[in-house]
Simulated assay, not measured.
Amino acid sequence: MSKPSESIFRRLQFYTTAAYPCSYLPGRMARSEVAAPAHLVDDAAYSRLIEQGFRRSGLFTYRPACDGCQACIPLRVDTRRFQRDRTQQKLWHRMQATLSAGIAPLHWDARHFELYLRYQRQRHPGAGMDQDDQAQYTQFLLTSRVHTEMAEFHDPDGTLRMVSIMDRIDHGISAVYTFYDPDWHGSLGTYGILWQLDYCRRLGLPWLYLGYWIEESRKMAYKSRFRPHQILRGGVWIEPASN
């Protein structure tokens, strides 16, 4: 076991995983630093961990600890200063008139799972998350010891089109995962982030944490389009010149 560079709580320990294939940069190997034991990562500890660049997957709270690579950069959007650009504004008004959103506690729903499988099979085929495995889905998205909620988006006919999993923390929201109807017209992924930014503002929360931005990954490029944002460098949140 090893301690992180910043001491968070003396009761937590941190270990580095064995190397595994990177999900974002082909041909590279990755490692993660994991907070343990998982049952001691409560809401207060989790808020501090998120602020220091950690993320959550099921009961695992982790951050990248790769050998010789620092491509994964934590990114958070300033919800108080965020202004939608022209394209985002058009999308916002169109989707506001098309989709209704509701908040629900974390729960199993067969419709969610069916939508999740369709999304994975079309958007991330072969990534290992497209199997008809309810246990894997439950472990990944429905297992949490912190304040987690779901946003469900329906069209006027009542058909489920998108689900966002969000963690509420002391100073914002951490966007855990969003999946949506891959055949639906429009940019549902972008709208999901715009909606979460608006939700943060309605709750009076200053930050929306979008996980890791990777400049070399096309899958992650969209995150930097939400401005102003900050990135975590050397343990300090800074606003890049590109803002």
Rank of each mutant, 00 (worst) to 15 (best):
M1W: 04
S2C: 10
S2G: 09
S7Q: 14
I8E: 13
R10L: 07
Q13I: 11
A18E: 14
P21K: 10
L25M: 08
P26A: 13
P26H: 10
G27Q: 04
G27E: 06
R28D: 07
M29P: 00
R31E: 08
E33C: 13
A36C: 12
A36Q: 14
P37H: 08
A38H: 14
H39P: 05
H39S: 14
V41Y: 10
V41M: 14
D42L: 02
A45D: 11
R48M: 15
R48N: 11
L49C: 02
L49Y: 02
I50G: 02
G53W: 01
F54S: 02
S57M: 10
S57N: 04
T61L: 01
T61V: 15
C66M: 06
Q70H: 13
A71D: 12
C72N: 03
I73E: 15
L75D: 07
L75F: 04
V77W: 01
R80E: 11
R81H: 13
R84G: 08
R84V: 07
D85P: 10
Q88F: 07
L91K: 07
H93C: 00
H93K: 13
H93E: 05
A101P: 00
G102R: 15
I103Y: 00
A104M: 13
P105E: 12
L106R: 09
H107P: 02
W108F: 09
R111L: 12
E114I: 10
Y116L: 10
Y116W: 11
L117Y: 11
R118N: 12
R118L: 11
H124I: 06
G126K: 12
D132M: 00
Q134W: 04
A135L: 08
Y137R: 10
F140K: 07
F140N: 03
F140T: 12
T143A: 09
T143N: 10
H147R: 13
M150F: 01
A151Y: 13
A151M: 15
D155A: 05
P156K: 08
G158S: 09
L160T: 09
S164R: 03
S164C: 12
S164M: 00
M166K: 06
M166E: 04
R168I: 04
I169Q: 05
I173S: 00
S174A: 14
A175D: 02
T178I: 04
T178Q: 03
F179V: 00
Y180S: 06
Y180N: 01
D181F: 04
P182A: 03
D183P: 06
G186R: 04
I193R: 04
W195I: 00
W195R: 02
C200W: 00
C200P: 05
L205F: 03
W207F: 04
L208T: 06
L210C: 05
Y212S: 01
W213A: 09
W213D: 05
I214E: 08
I214Q: 06
S224N: 12
R225D: 15
R227Y: 01
R227D: 06
L232M: 09
V236L: 10
V236C: 12
W237M: 11
W237K: 08
W237R: 12
P240E: 11
